[in-house]
């Protein structure tokens, strides 16, 4: 078993034009979780979220997610966010998981942990 530390944040949302799951990363929104910017300081994540919210014609309802390190690989803490980062567990040929790679494999192997705090807050707000 690899060590599990929960200490990072990332910013995600769905793209307005096509609904694609995207992550805030170098140079803007990126389609793959491995390209997401990871923030050790929650204040940096908040700043990224504010920047994202300034772009309402590009992104819908962006929010912050928790990310932990499983060994050397960053993995979204909540199961829901892992499904978003990968694709449906019932169609392994669909979604981002089809591309493979070590980080996506680590996400697929991950288990447990709490619900996405960012998303819960979003739902409550409504």
């Amino acid at each position: 078993m690899t060590a599990t530390v929960s200490l990072l944040k990332a910013v995600t949302g769905n793209r307005l034009a096509d609904g694609e799951v995207v992550f805030w990363g170098e140079g803007g929104w990126r389609e793959r979780f491995p390209d997401a910017s990871l923030f050790a300081d929650p204040a940096d994540a908040d700043a990224a979220l504010d920047a994202a919210k300034a772009d309402p014609t590009v992104i819908v309802d962006p929010y912050i997610i928790d990310v932990r390190l499983d060994g050397e690989f960053p993995v979204p803490t909540s199961f829901r966010e892992r499904v978003r980062a990968l694709g449906p567990t019932t169609h392994l040929d669909m979604g981002k998981q089809a591309e493979g790679g070590p980080i996506l494999e680590a996400i697929a192997a991950a288990s447990g942990a709490a619900r996405s705090a960012g998303r819960s807050n979003l739902i409550k707000k409504r």
Partner: peptide, 11 residues
């Protein structure tokens, strides 16, 4: 009202 939801992976 046109049946379009934003779901996890897409609309």
């Amino acid at each position: 009202m046109n049946g379009l939801y934003m779901q996890l992976h897409a609309y």
